[in-house]
Structures are given as C-alpha cells and as structure tokens.
C-alpha cells in the first residue's frame, strides 16, 4: 500500500515536471526559430529603408515603414488609453472605495471587456470609421487600438491601486485635500509602479496586435506624414510578406518578426524591472 503511494507520487511528480519544463522548451523553440530566421535577414538596410517596388513583389529595401507606423500607432493609442484609463482607475479606487460591490461589479465588467478578441474591435473600428466617413488611416488605427488597450491599462493599474492601504487614503483626506488631490498626488504616486506596468503592457499589446489594425490602419509602403494617411504596421508586414513567392520579400517578414519579438522581449523584461524599481520608495 505504502509503496504504491510513493510510486504514484513519483510518476505524477515526473509528469507535471515534464509539463513545466516543456513550456520553457516551447518558449525557447519559438524564440530560436524567430531569431534564426530573423537575424540572417536582418541588415542595416532593413531597418533604415522603406520597401521599393511594392511590398509584395519588389525585393529591395526594408521595413522602416512598418517600424515607424507601428510606433506611431502604439504610442498614439497608449497616449489616448492613458488619458481615458488613468482617471477611470483612480476613480474606482478613490471615489468608490466605500462601495465594495460597485467596485467589484466594475472590475467584473472590465475583465470581461479584456476578453473580447481584437478582431471584434477591428470590425467595430471599421463600422465606426464608415459611420464617421473616414478612410483606413493612422487615426482610425490609433482609435481602434486605444479602445483595445484601455481595459488592459485600467485593470492592470487598478490591481496595484487596490493594494494601497486605506489608511494612506484616509490620512490624505484628513489633511484636508480634495479627492482629486488624493487621487493624483497620493494614490497615483504610491501606485506608480502599477502605472508603469500598465502602460508597458498596453503598449506591448498595441504594437503586436494585427487583427485590429487590419481594417483600420490599412497598409502602405510609405511612412505616413499625416493622421489621415494609411500606415503600415509590423504585424501586418509579417502577415502580408510571409506568403510571398519571392525570397527577398519573405526575408523582410522574418526581419520584421525578429524586430517585433525583440521589442516585446524588452517591454516584458523592463516592465518587471521597472515595477520593482519604482515600488521601492513606496510608503509601507
């Protein structure tokens, strides 16, 4: 009897261990494949030139249009999402602090909103665009991506804000500050690490998302100069160029994938590092 117990324990420890280590292996495998293909096609021209002769057929040039377009869209969308998201997150944690049920209900809705797939946001953005009489453009892309990442930013920031002790909040009010001052001068600073994580998470999601910009931002070989011009993005550069019959064009897709993966890696790791760094000076 006892022996069977121990054998069962060993078997399952082994099985679960294999499952865990295989996750590390999968991540390593994906990154290795992306980098092996990407670095052999990555060159100086690739990141400093726009494609020439059409993105699907012309072999010359690089993916500068997609890099710049992606940065524009992700930065613009993150900016809008901060403007909408930060006050909303602060409101939940300052004004609604006495209403636990309302707080939980709002968090519940936000979590559900987080689950809506980006293609639906894309379709909605497209419908909105037609309604407003806009064409596929940088602005339409920015608005759609902003809608997509706002719930993420609110919820991530809110998660950190909700751990701030109530005493700090009460102390600030007792000193005679208004709720606005409590929100922006006390809670925002105390939860700054959460703000950084939220912004980086939103930015990473925004720069990597393809389905939402597919309809709304369009695709072009040029670098957009105004908000009403279409813009290329890195994920779409991968998607459109990967199936090309011409090897040079496929190289551009591989290079774009390597660039995008590096950006995501940097964002992921720096979010971890920065949030630890900024929470050091918090009032405990």
């Amino acid at each position: 009897m006892n022996k069977r117990k121990i054998i069962e324990e060993k078997i399952f420890k082994l099985l679960t261990g294999i499952a865990t280590y295989s996750l590390i292996a999968i991540l390593g495998y994906i990154i290795a494949i992306i980098f092996i293909n990407g670095f052999s096609s990555l060159s100086f021209d690739m990141i400093t030139k726009t494609p020439s002769g059409g993105y699907y057929y012309g072999g010359e040039g690089g993916v500068l249009n997609a890099i710049v377009g992606s940065l524009y869209i992700a930065l613009g969308a993150t900016f809008i999402a901060i403007i909408i998201g930060v006050p909303a997150a602060l409101f939940i944690n300052v004004h609604l602090i006495r209403y636990k049920r309302t707080q939980n209900f709002i968090r519940y809705l936000l979590d559900a909103l987080w689950g809506i797939p980006s293609i639906v946001y894309g379709a909605f953005g497209f419908a909105l665009m037609l309604y407003l009489g806009m064409n596929a453009s940088l602005l339409a892309g920015i608005i759609t991506v902003a809608l997509l990442i706002t719930p993420i930013i609110i919820r991530t920031f809110d998660e950190v804000l909700s751990t701030i002790p109530k005493g700090l909040h009460e102390a600030s009010l007792a000193m005679g500050s208004t709720k606005t001052e409590t929100a922006f001068k006390v809670l925002f600073r105390q939860g700054f690490s959460g703000f950084i994580t939220a912004v980086l998470l939103g930015f990473g999601r925004g720069i990597g998302d393809a389905a939402s910009v597919l309809f709304t931002a369009g695709y072009t070989d040029l670098i957009p100069k105004y908000l009403d011009e279409p813009a290329a993005t890195l994920p779409l550069a991968i998607f459109f160029q990967l199936t090309s019959p011409i090897p040079e064009v496929r190289d551009r897709a591989y290079a774009a994938a390597a660039i995008l993966t590096i950006i995501i890696l940097i964002i992921s790791l720096s979010a971890r590092f920065l949030s630890r760094n900024y929470s050091k000076s918090n009032i405990k």
């Binding site: 994906i30 999601r205 995501i264 971890r272």
Partner: peptide
C-alpha cells in the same frame, strides 16, 4: 524563473505564433 517565461509567452503577438 517561470514568471517571466509565462509573461513573455503571453506577450508574444499572434502573428509571431502564426509565423512559427
């Protein structure tokens, strides 16, 4: 060690998974 691994896996865009 696994926390960043999961984070990165979650952060990789779907196009990259598609290319892989």
């Amino acid at each position: 060690f696994m926390h960043p691994v999961i984070d990165i896996l979650a952060g990789i865009p779907s196009v990259i998974y598609g290319m892989w």
